[in-house]
Amino acid sequence: MLRFLVRRSLGAIVILLLISAFTFFLFFAAPRDPALLACGRNCGPDALAIIHKNMGLDQPVPVQYWHFMAGIFTGRDFAQGPCPAPCFGYSFATGDAVWNTIVDRFPITLSLTIGAAAVFLFVGLATGMLAAWKQGTLLDKLFSSASLVLSSMQIYFIGPIVLTLLVYNTNLLGQPKYVPITEDPVGWFMGLLIPWCVLSIIFTAQYTRMARSAMIEQLQEEHVRTARAKGMSAATVFFRYAWRGSLIPIVTIFGIDLGTLFGGAMITEVTFALPGLGTLSIESVLRTDLPTVMGVMLFAATFIILFNIIVDAAYALIDPRVRLA
């Protein structure tokens, strides 16, 4: 297990280096001067020179990349002042340290993701298994067709509809907003309730379909038949044997989804005007704030890779046949 984790972590570092290099060179090696992009339309030569100096853009790109990567681990000194250890540079647009902005915005994305994941994992698995349990009945057909339609929904379509129904027309709930949980747990919960539900509608539908088909597949396995033949009750077989086997594909997908969502649920955050990482990245993209985009990109990629490793390690715990060499 330890050897597996070490090997996978080394691989992850290589992949992160490649992603950072690819992104960096495309961003900064473009024939266009990134300072010019940063500066916008009304940009005088003075402002340009300041940006150049601040960003170290007067040096060749590989040197800039080296400084950038070294800065992440050791920190570096900019004209604005020193930038301590995890240094991703300063934003072109606001002049804030990119790392501080990410740290500021991340709790919002984290709250959104964890709440939604709890909802869709629980509800999705429960309905999926219920549908598999009652396979072929009216209930199964109802769940299956509902999940088919709901999984084809778009957040930017149902989000406004839910807001209109619950907020603007009836005032049942307030406008979605983020309040730190440390300040006001109730406000945190109420403010994020609508985004959680809307984000999880689509996921729930997909998890229902996945859980149902994984469960049905498992119920046809030989070990399940043997267990039944030995006289175990249907419930025992269902929950102790088939359930465990059906978890494997779901854990994989759940890991991927969680890793992706931690990097920012862009559409949801934009739809509900929540200032998380997703909103930050789209704001920075529209302002061509390259250092911030670069920072969020690496941050998000780290989560995706991290969760891939966690998923592989989790296999070994769920499925005793899997040996991590």
């Binding site: 920012g264 862009m266 993209v285 061509t288 969020v296 990109m297 995706i304």
Partner: peptide, 27 residues
């Protein structure tokens, strides 16, 4: 394939449309 799979694709699409545009077209 492993490398490209690790890209956060949503963010990649959003970030690279303007960047690639900047490479091909003067602002």
């Amino acid at each position: 394939i492993d490398l490209l799979m690790a890209f956060p694709n949503q963010l990649f699409y959003v970030a690279f449309v303007p960047v690639v545009t900047a490479i091909f077209v003067a602002p």
